[in-house]
Design a protein around this nucleic acid. Structure first.
Length: 470
RNA sequence: GGCGACGUAGCCAAGUGGUAAGGCAGAGCUCUGCAAAAGCUCCAUUCGGCAGUUCGAAUCUGCCCGUCGCCUCCA
């Protein structure tokens, strides 16, 4: 399998460092604000990558951290009067629920920054000892000038960065590029003890400490480190700067994978621009499987434009897959014509769009298609047939259905104590009689009346008539 | 100012040297009393523009135009 490696800026054949074990660290959420479509895309991408690596018979360890302490949550706590811990807990619970709806599997390990304080403190200590960090008035800082490879991942050089750097007034750094490893606490802020003073970890160090603790205690590197493209600089650059000076055998991660960002209606997602929608709300508006399909139809590393229109298209595509899946025989085993095509697509830098294209080609040919194989391939992409696949998606009848039906056909059907289903059955019987008598005017009138009440009829091939809410 | 990505049909989008996947929308046909649903067929002589390299370019090079992102918290 070939993957584009940000570290080398090249498409490379993926080989585990210690086969068959594959160790993946994905930068998770900082739950101090609501999750959005961008998070969904990123985690969906790594979810499918993980599934595919397992399909390829690798033994995957998947770690995704939670940065549960940061400036923003402390800020919010001050504003709202809530405890920072509750704020973080609530946002994270909401995020987890969204992931569950999207069918993103739970990580093998889900380390919280605040539960790895000893490891973080230990790592900072090592950096201080080696001269990569210094204690200042505001905290412990990383000395960027000391790390020669700084900027290698993101393709920047220290000189350019210095030219464009803003000088932060309140900090006590030797150099504007230096960043905090440990921030001394101001009154009222959450604190943990450290040899340099009580405080909290800076952003970046938690990932270095936790990936080392969980994936690479010997300091010889792990396989894949991932996250959204916006993490390349400074987050991942800083992680490398923190980790590699302490390693026996850099690089920190063999492959660095970055998912493309999401734009919302062709604009950057931003609360101030007014085009931000929480993921939880999005999941109310759209079928989670359609969201998954929409993301997988775009190359993982490209900017993706999330619009109502693209979601409508994905939804229609998903329905077609459902319809076809339902129509396929439940055959045993797999006929084997689809899987090799899927593998060929995914092996080429994880081309999920191509894979989906193969699936559409496959279902367009019901003579050779096989439900078991289709199910397996869909599962690989994290799309699982559920109850809604077996029958038409049960959608709610409109709330005023019975009232409308009364207005339309109250004189022909008895609605007293009748259920909506029973009432529809009555109309269906009237219509069947009219059709038997070739009174098509009457049968069409009944069909149109039901449609106005929000129910659409279908005369199936066998002569049976089915209905569904519209 | 520095770094980078992208520009392919009405919309979304794959394709990185060998002659344009796929989805949505649209059109026609089949089925149907008519619809609906489904199936079949059609739908870019052309890939932002211009020049160049090549037997051959959407794919490589140069310039131009346009859109967007990162450089500050960000998946």
């Amino acid at each position: 399998m070939k993957l584009y490696n940000t570290r080398t800026r090249a498409l490379e054949e993926f080989k585990p460092l210690k086969p068959p074990h594959v160790r993946i660290y994905v930068c998770g959420l900082t739950p101090s604000a609501e999750a959005h479509a961008g998070h969904a895309r990123s985690f969906l991408f790594f979810d499918v990558l993980r599934r595919y690596l397992e399909h390829l018979r690798y033994d995957v360890t998947f770690v995704q951290n939670v940065t549960d302490i940061d400036d923003r949550s402390i800020e919010r706590a001050k504003e709202t009067g809530e405890h920072w811990y509750d704020i973080v807990g609530d946002y994270y619970a909401s995020f987890k629920e969204s992931m569950r709806k999207l069918g993103v599997r739970e990580p093998d390990e889900e380390p919280y920054a605040t539960r790895f304080i000893p490891q973080i403190v230990e790592m900072i200590g090592e950096l201080v000892d080696k001269g990569f960090a210094y204690v200042s008035k505001g905290g412990v800082y990383y000395r960027v000038a000391k790390f020669r490879r700084y900027g290698a991942l993101s393709g920047r050089n220290v000189k350019d960065l210095e030219a464009g750097a803003r000088v932060e007034v309140d900090e006590f750094k030797d150099d504007p590029l230096d960043f905090a490893l440990w921030k001394f606490a101001k009154p009222g802020e959450p604190t943990w003890p450290s040899p340099w003073g009580d405080g909290r970890p800076g952003w970046h160090i938690e990932c270095s400490a936790m990936s080392r603790a969980l994936l690479d205690p010997p300091g010889e590197g792990f396989d894949i480190h991932g996250g959204g493209a916006d993490l390349i600089f400074p987050h991942h650059e800083n992680e490398i700067a923190q980790s590699e000076p302490l390693m026996k055998k850099p690089p920190m991660a063999n492959f660095w994978l970055h998912g493309g960002l999401v734009q919302f209606e062709s604009r950057k997602m931003s609360k101030s621009l007014g085009n931000f929608e929480p993921l939880a709300d999005l999941l109310e508006r759209f079928d989670p499987q359609a969201i998954r399909l929409a993301f997988l139809q775009t190359g993982y590393s490209k900017v993706m434009n999330f619009t109502d229109e693209s979601m409508a298209a994905a939804n229609a595509g998903l329905n077609r897959i459902k319809e076809c899946w339902r129509g396929l025989e439940r055959g045993e085993g797999r006929d084997g014509s689809l899987m090799p095509r899927i593998e060929a697509a995914l092996d080429e830098d994880f081309n999920t769009a191509q894979a989906l294209s193969e699936i559409f080609g496959y279902i367009g040919n019901p003579k050779t298609a096989n439900r078991a194989e289709l199910t397996y391939v869909l599962a690989l992409l994290g799309i699982k047939p559920d109850d809604s696949w077996l029958a038409e998606t049960p959608r709610m009848l409109r709330a005023d259905f019975m009232d409308r039906l009364h207005d339309e056909l109250g004189s022909q059907v008895s609605l007293n104590g009748e259920t909506p289903e029973g009432a529809i059955a009555q109309v269906l019987r009237l219509r069947a009689r009219a059709r038997a008598e070739k009174d098509f005017k009457e049968s069409d009138r009944l069909r149109d009346a039901l449609l106005r009440c929000g129910v659409e009829l279908r005369d199936e091939q066998g002569g049976e008539t089915t209905w569904q809410p519209v």
